[in-house]
Design a protein around this nucleic acid. Structure first.
Lengths: 190, 190
DNA sequence: TTTTGACCAAATGTCCAAATTAGTCAGTAA
DNA sequence: TTACTGACTAATTTGGACATTTGGTCAAAA
């Protein structure tokens, strides 16, 4: 194997999806960038969707690794959840592919893009759910429904980072941590 | 004044906007339903948007009244916030006009519909913010940023009522109250 | 056996004429 | 004079004929 054609294709497609999104990326274009015949792509991937899936699955794996790296076992559950969630949402802003995909899902409603967004959200929820289950077993937090708790945490995070910005000055990382602590971990009551 | 033409127009328009939404409602249609010439509409409202605004402002006022009615001064702040927010979101499901508008905003991105949705959201936020300020002054809850707190509460509510349903069995009213209490008012930590 | 690009059907985009629509205003009715 | 009307207009939207592009195939080349 002189050149890894599969890798060439995946790299070309990653570039194109990142720059133009799913819909505006054509198989002809990918073939040209990858320096292969279009037919070659179809010896590795049977549809455009399958090629896209391979790339987005890598993306999700990368996100998981980034989140896992943000966690520091010597810190508390609270701090770790904050670090992991913040890292994941930061990841979204750093990676052209996620930016493009979220934009495409929002603005053009491309089904393939929307499906990936859902897969990403589910992966994040599972990640947090897992951390919650472990924290419950270690007695670090109160018994609670992990499914519901991870859902509440993610929604709150996304709201504080992305929705709040639409009408207010962005919240700093520290402010977000404080808000999370105040509401989820402490409660408002006197 | 034998017949109140203005009222005829507003009633006709309310019906049409509720059934067909903003874009699919034509001024000819409103005139026909209201039994007036089209020109008459323009003696009361100078544009289609202005007619729409009058109707949506009434809607928001109605929502405020419904929310205010849900509040019982003898209950705690927590219970009242829950009752008011739940009532407002219930209102959305009961009133054809809000259903249609949210659908039109989501699916067709009609600017007029999206602006109303934003106005509704702001009205809800102001309503809760006001209740929070009062509760702080009465010493019922901890000192906190009312803007941020109302934002967090609304986002959490909408997530629990509308977003949770997309992948799970709907939560009962009582369950939602419990979740709110557990997270916002009590906190998770041991 | 692996790779290729010309080829195909289907999906998408491009026109443009015809239809629809928000808003006007000269005229009618009261 | 005043309140109301609907035919009219300019601008936008729609529908559909036609052209282009695109995902996917496959016979031939390497």
């Amino acid at each position: 194997m002189v050149v890894d054609r599969r890798k060439m294709i995946v790299d070309a497609a990653t570039n194109s999806f990142s720059q133009f999104g799913f819909k505006a990326t054509t198989m002809d274009q990918v073939a040209k960038i990858a320096n292969v015949g279009k037919g070659t792509i179809y010896t590795f991937f049977s549809t455009k969707e399958e090629l896209f899936d391979e790339i987005t699955n890598s993306l999700i794996k990368e996100m998981k690794i980034a989140a896992e790296e943000a966690i520091d076992e010597t810190l508390t559950f609270q701090e770790n959840v904050h670090r992991a969630l913040y890292r994941i949402l930061e990841f979204r802003l750093e990676h052209q592919l996620t930016i493009k995909l979220f934009q495409e899902g929002r603005e053009m409603r491309t089904p393939a893009a929307m499906e990936v967004i859902e897969r990403i959200e589910k992966a994040i929820l599972n990640f947090i759910k897992d951390k919650i289950v472990k924290a419950i077993n270690k007695g670090e937090i109160q018994r609670c429904d992990p499914e519901l708790t991870s859902f509440v945490m993610l929604k709150l995070y996304v709201a504080l980072i992305f929705d709040w910005e639409k009408n207010h000055e962005p919240l700093s990382k520290e402010k977000i941590a404080k808000v999370l602590e105040q509401y989820i971990f402490e409660g408002l009551s006197k």
